[in-house]
Write a protein that binds this DNA or RNA. Structure first.
Length: 426
DNA sequence: AATTGCGCACGGT
DNA sequence: ACCGTGCGCAATT
């Protein structure tokens, strides 16, 4: 409970700062939350961290400093006509579908309390986050990507993603655009809450902000355990790819840099058991296309599990995030990850152990941050997930039909099937 | 002193 | 041209 309260406070604060035209950075957020609600900055920080992991809040590096965005208000930046069409089409489709099929109410219900914002409606408001790229190495793992589009909801993006199913998963990042970048830039920027009166988060905060340097980015968050975590995953080389990329062009570092790194948390699998399969990320090219903010990686509290997510699974796993492939639309977050796999191997067993937060994080990481809130609201944990039927997903969560169908067909069904198959084996 | 309001420059679409 | 962002500074509390 308190969590939702914090979510509201934080989101509200971010919105408030934005409307005031002040950068929603850690310091201001913590200060405002404390002022308005008396919350301890450290706690706010920790909660913010969680929100970032579940992608309710996006952490981006904009103009050289860290900013936070209300994910629900951000959407893909590119929406030009092209996009519009897609969106419209998607919307229409969903509408049609809903009406025809049984779930018409979904549409209406689509937004929840917060959702109201705008997602679709104002549509353009945000461009915030977008792509990824990165710099930091260590923690890179978390990213899977896509969130953006997903959260966008329209899923126009999805469409493109669908393509992936087929034969052309590879995305090219045509991004190329800018050159993007500067990368390391941010390491500096993030200053934890230093300024604020929060002297000691608690025990030994050792993490110090910039301790290592490498992960300084993550360091921002002080206190809590998380920050100190090493990047858990060992994929050193991997990100070096992008890093290389980025670093390669130091060109202009004036200040605007661009790139975003999706922070997707590791949520994909549940806490304990999964291990990563082979981690392979292909070369990543990051896509930085456009906008200027970049997501900054970080995982806080749960960071530990970060590694789990991307793995290429042996079998088929399902992929989802892909990005826009061939060029059609470039979404903000294009992922380089070809796919996320739902981990299959141990999923089954773990599923029973997933908490409500695990479920929400999973869907958030799978590209449905907004919808993940519905799972949280309905308190769906792993066991409940196994019991969910198609109709429950389509009509019981009050989420739009389009995402609901994808969530059910590509994730829930797969998870359930995997779980039960394994059960049989046993 | 801390907040809030907002003009304006920037950079992406 | 339009839009989101956020710096920098004035006004307000």
């Amino acid at each position: 409970m308190s969590e939702s309260k914090y979510r509201e406070w934080i989101l509200d604060t971010i919105d408030s700062l934005r409307s005031r035209k002040a950068r929603p950075d850690l310091e201001r957020i913590c200060r405002m939350v404390r002022r308005r609600h008396g919350s301890d900055p450290d706690r706010t920080c920790a909660e913010l961290d969680k929100l970032i992991q579940e992608q309710t809040v996006l952490k981006v590096n904009y103009k050289g400093s860290i900013s936070y965005r209300n994910a629900a208000k951000v959407q893909r930046r590119s929406r030009k006509k092209d996009d519009t069409n897609n969106a419209a089409a998607a919307a229409a489709a969903s509408a049609a579908a809903s009406s025809s099929s049984a779930a018409r109410r979904n549409v209406a219900a689509a937004e929840e309390e917060d959702a109201s914002h705008s997602d679709l409606s104002n549509g353009d408001s945000a461009l915030g986050p977008a792509d990824q790229d990165e710099t930091e190495d260590l923690e890179a793992d978390g990213s899977t990507v896509m969130d953006t589009d997903s959260n966008a909801d329209e899923e126009g993006a999805d469409e493109s993603r669908d393509g992936q199913d087929g034969p052309s998963p590879r995305h090219t990042y045509e991004d190329g655009p800018l050159g993007a970048v500067s990368v390391h830039a941010f390491s500096a920027p993030c200053s934890p809450m230093g300024p604020r009166p929060a002297p000691s988060p608690s025990p030994g905060p050792g993490p110090g902000p910039a301790s290592g340097g490498p992960d300084s980015a993550s360091a921002w968050k002080s206190g809590e355990r998380a920050s100190s975590l090493p990047p858990s995953s060992p994929r050193g080389p991997a990100h070096s790819d992008w890093a290389g990329n980025a670093s390669g062009s130091p060109a202009e570092h004036q200040h605007k840099d661009i790139k975003v790194k999706p922070v997707v948390p590791a949520v994909a699998t549940s806490p304990g058991a999964l291990k990563n399969c082979a981690v392979k990320r292909e070369e990543t090219g990051r896509t930085d296309s456009a906008s200027s903010d970049q997501l900054v990686p970080d995982y806080g509290a749960n960071g530990a599990r970060a590694d789990a997510n991307r793995k290429v699974c042996d079998g088929r796993a399902q992929t989802m995030p892909v990005s826009a492939d061939n060029g059609e639309l470039r979404l903000p977050f294009v992922s380089f990850e070809p796919s996320i796999c739902v981990k299959k191997e141990k999923t089954g067993q773990n599923l029973l152990q997933w908490s409500v937060a695990d479920v929400a994080s999973y869907f958030s990481a799978a590209g449905f941050p907004e919808q993940s809130m519905a799972f949280r609201t309905q308190e769906i944990d792993g066991k409940s997930l196994l019991l969910m039927q198609r109709s429950d997903v389509l009509t019981g969560l009050s989420i739009r039909l389009g995402p609901a169908l994808k969530i059910y067909e590509r994730h829930i069904k797969v998870l359930q099937r995997t779980h039960f198959l394994e059960d049989e084996d046993l």
